[in-house]
């Protein structure tokens, strides 16, 4: 059997800070280099991360209401999936990032290339 190692896209794990920087059930924007990421702290303890800018009119997604696995942009109400950034009532999409909490600290996995 022939095994091929596919070159994994190089990723970086970034510690963005403590969980209590984010209000319960709310989001907050983190600026990492040139990138702005909205991190959401769900009431069930999970965290999710999406690009912070709504692709519609650049609304701040971190200020949006979350619930039921979605975030609603505060400017015009566009909805996106917290899981994968897919637009739910629109054809747009935002990037999503893997986010984890270890001992009250939030870690994001970002690709290096971008």
């Amino acid at each position: 059997m022939l095994c091929v190692d596919l070159p994994m896209k190089e990723t970086t794990q970034v510690l963005v800070g403590s969980l209590d920087q984010i209000g319960l059930g709310q989001g907050r924007c983190f600026v990492i280099g040139t990138r702005k990421v909205a991190v959401f702290r769900l009431r069930n303890g999970e965290v999710c991360a999406l690009d912070a800018c709504c692709p519609h009119r650049a609304g701040p997604l971190a200020e949006g209401i979350i619930g039921g696995g979605i975030v609603i942009c505060p400017l015009h109400g566009y909805k996106f999936s917290l899981a994968d950034g897919r637009g739910l009532d629109n054809d747009l999409a935002v990037s999503s990032y893997q986010a984890e909490v270890h001992e009250g600290m939030i870690f994001l996995r970002l690709s290096r290339a971008d």
């Binding site: 970034v14 510690l15 963005v16 800070g17 209590d20 920087q21 984010i22 209000g23 709310q26 907050r28 924007c29 983190f30 600026v31 990492i32 702005k36 912070a52 971190a62």
Partner: peptide, 10 residues
């Protein structure tokens, strides 16, 4: 504490 929080620069 997070009520008027602006984005955090990491």
């Amino acid at each position: 504490s997070t009520q008027f929080a602006e984005p955090v620069t990491v």
